[in-house]
Design a protein around this nucleic acid. Structure first.
Length: 687
RNA sequence: CGCGCGGUGGAGCAGCCCGGUAGCUCGCGAGGCUCAUAACCUCGAGGUCGCAGGUUCGAAUCCUGCCCGCGCCA
């Protein structure tokens, strides 16, 4: 027994209250849940804290669209999230919400601290404003061309291509993703946090080698810490769903200011319910703070957040554990392929233990992306869990069902002792988040147990009346080896731990339960603990995921009525060209009727669909069209379009585009493909 | 272009930090067992460890250059 148990506060990133939990999210919550369960099993005091992230423009807009209050929306989502998490045996000690009184008060307190520290400055900001939606546009709701590297279709704050950070007004050719409208520049005062003041501290904290994975420390050093840190814009003018700032009336804290503070607020709620002191968890040097996040939100958690905590006198993170993204069959999750699987859909068809085990087998404590290959998923779960682990119990339990284990643990060629000795090594691997290596160690133990059973042939002993004691001894060894494995797997497979407890009538409550064999205890009748993965169910899940998704591609935002109410906006948005073109100029453009014979999503592209156009006969064109926001590939196949057939081929990031499909509209949700009246045939020229 | 990660028998990976018999899972071939959820056990075939240099008695492992793949706001 360890003399001192650690106190550990653990958080997973707060899921945004704008959508359901899907298997991509689950990587993180499962990874974290395993770590927390492991810590608790080791006898440490550990809290798993999470909450819904509820503020921001997206929530406001969605509530508006659904005709209800933001509060109603987020209450609903929170319920769904909690339901999904519990379905996967993800067990939070507390699940709060950033829209809570505790969070409001903490925000105010921390705001006061950073203000007192002289970190807050006010500056006028020209921000893009969506006149149609009636709101300023959050960075994520503006897309345009990156001012640094000129990549098209980048968000307003940050370029995916060159990883530069900038402000939305620097963006070239901006569009509102809410309405498709061209936003206008408006000026309003904002308040900023001077991160640069904390540069020396952040340098030291991130580069100490103790709080971050090395590749992350490297990344920060190369991308941010080499330059002056930018002031961070943390307030928003109306309209915005969030907390109004006490000393800055009419303005709101930016969602990224109050979201991480939600970690503390949620802990506070737990403290109030459990008569504990918040300071013991967030201001005590004896308490570790561990954050688990995806690599997408590295910046906020490794620079901004430590800076804030430091300034406000809260504990700094002991470690920020950063994981990669989930791919399915080597590709980004895709709605059309049915691999964008929601938690709820998964649970309708498959056992959550499968996913917990599979993710664990893929997680290594590195930032690498991890891939869920459907065949591998089945192979791994079937072979490891059913074929190896559960099989051990299945091979022994029947021979002693209704009876008891031997009163003295029999000689077993040191198998149990060796496996007990492996406990520390396996624990170290769990501690380091290298679940993949931990599971490999555990599977070696399972192999040995199966070998033992093979060598001792209990099925033969059973037939010999004089060998009944020997039979019970063999099963006692087999079941104890199984139980050891169940203990080591308990963080990953809590359900298996519960089943094992029932089978052997002894709870699994501590890691050290693997150190001492059970003897003399009754054995319950054996029941199957885990089924093999049913490929039919996997298929159904994928089908379900396909059908449930098109609905959530929202229709156009503006339900304009009246029959011929044609306004001047289109022309105002894009004035007509003055220069004439000659008939000869016009003839240069060879426009043809074409049929879409194949349409696919382009992985990595936000706007593009890849189309194969037939011009009749064998003549086809491969074309990339920026129409993904409005059209699904399925609905395009078979329809006629107009294409420019002699456009010079253009090499794009995703392949070569050999033409262009004609469409109108301003972009975003405002895109309309041109098509000929019925009767036209592919290949016909447009004159 | 940048940053990060990777390139090891058919597939997926470990080993690399701390140089010295190339290992695991699946698949494949042969055999065994028949207790177990067509599970389990044994044996076998199969690898120029991306390429080229360098350091060294010795390199998958260290150094340099190059090539290729993947990822980059969920």
């Amino acid at each position: 027994m360890e003399p001192m148990s650690r106190r550990i506060l653990v958080t997973a990133a707060l899921p945004y209250a704008n959508g359901p939990i899907h298997i991509g999210h689950l990587v993180e919550y499962i990874q974290t849940d395993i770590w927390v369960r492991f810590q608790k099993l080791r006898g440490n005091r550990c809290l798993y804290i999470c909450a819904d992230d509820t503020h921001g423009t997206a929530i406001m807009i969605r509530a508006r669209q659904e005709g209800r209050s933001e509060e109603a929306l987020i209450a609903d989502m929170r319920e769904q999230h909690i339901r999904d998490f519990s379905g996967f045996d993800i067990e939070f000690d507390h699940y709060g919400s950033t829209h809570s009184e505790e969070n409001r008060r903490l925000c105010a307190q921390i705001w006061q601290s950073v203000t007192d520290a002289g970190l807050v400055v006010e500056k006028p900001v020209e921000q893009l404003y969506d006149p149609q939606a009636g709101t300023y546009l959050a960075d994520r709701f503006v897309k345009g061309i990156c001012p640094v590297c000129k990549s098209p279709d980048q968000y307003g704050d940050h370029c995916e291509k060159c990883l530069s950070n900038y402000t939305p007004k620097e963006l070239i050719d901006p569009r509102s993703t809410l309405s498709g409208a061209t936003p206008e520049l408006r000026e309003a005062p904002h308040r900023f946090i001077r991160l640069e003041t904390l540069h020396a501290f952040l340098n030291e904290w991130t580069q100490s080698g103790r709080h971050l994975q090395p590749e992350i420390a490297n990344y920060l050093k190369g991308h941010f810490l080499g330059d002056e840190l930018r002031d961070w814009d943390v307030t928003r003018p109306p309209q915005y769903f969030g907390f109004e700032i006490p000393d800055f009336p009419g303005n709101y804290w930016y969602v990224w200011f109050d979201a991480p503070i939600g970690y503390i607020a949620s802990t506070w709620q737990w403290c109030q319910q459990n008569q504990e002191s918040l300071d013991d968890w967030w201001k005590s040097p004896d308490c570790e703070v561990h954050h688990f996040i995806g690599k997408d939100i590295t910046y906020f958690h490794t620079l901004f957040w430590p800076g804030i905590l430091k300034t406000a006198g809260f504990s700094l993170p002991t470690f920020v554990h950063i994981h990669g993204f989930l791919t399915v069959d080597g590709e980004k999750m895709s709605k059309s392929r049915g691999t964008f699987v929601q938690a709820e859909t998964y649970l309708k068809h498959l056992d959550p233990s499968y996913l917990r085990y599979f993710f664990a087998s893929k997680l290594s404590g590195k930032v690498d992306d991890l891939d869920l290959n459907v065949d591998e998923f089945k192979a791994k779960v079937d072979a490891d869990l059913v074929g190896k682990v559960v099989n051990i119990a299945s091979r022994c339990a029947r021979f002693v069902a209704g009876g008891r284990l031997s009163d003295v643990y029999p000689a077993d060629d040191r198998l149990f002792a060796d496996a007990a000795a492996a406990g520390d090594r396996i624990a170290a691997l769990f501690e380091a988040c290298d679940y993949n290596a931990a599971l490999r160690e555990i599977m070696v133990l399972a192999d040995r147990a199966n070998q033992y059973i093979e060598a001792n042939e209990p099925w033969k002993l059973r037939k010999d009346e004089t060998q009944q004691d020997a039979l019970r001894d063999v099963c006692t060894v087999g079941l104890n080896l199984f139980r050891q494995i169940a203990v080591y797997l308990a963080p990953v497979l809590p359900q298996l731990a519960r089943q094992t407890a029932t089978l052997l009538n002894s709870p699994i409550a501590h890691w050290d339960d693997a150190q001492t064999p059970l003897t003399g205890t009754p054995v319950s009748p054996f029941e199957h603990m885990l089924q093999r993965v049913d490929p039919g169910q996997v298929q159904k899940m994928i089908e379900d995921s396909k059908s449930s998704s098109p609905a959530d591609a929202p229709a156009a935002v503006n339900p304009q009525s009246s029959s011929f109410d044609d306004g001047p906006e289109p022309l105002q948005q894009e004035p007509m060209t003055d220069a004439h073109c000659t008939i000869d100029d016009f003839i240069k453009v060879d426009m043809r009727v074409a049929r879409v014979i194949a349409a696919n999503h382009v992985e990595g592209a936000d706007k593009l669909l890849q189309l194969t156009l037939s011009l009749g006969g064998d003549e086809t064109r491969n074309v990339f069209a920026g129409i993904k926001s409005v059209y699904n590939p399925e609905q395009l196949i078979g329809r006629l379009v107009i294409c420019c057939a002699n456009l010079a081929p253009r090499k794009m990031r995703f392949g070569t585009s050999e033409g262009m499909v004609l469409a109108s509209g301003s972009g975003g949700q405002d895109i309309y493909l041109l098509s000929p009246d019925s009767g036209a045939k592919p290949g016909m020229r447009v004159h």
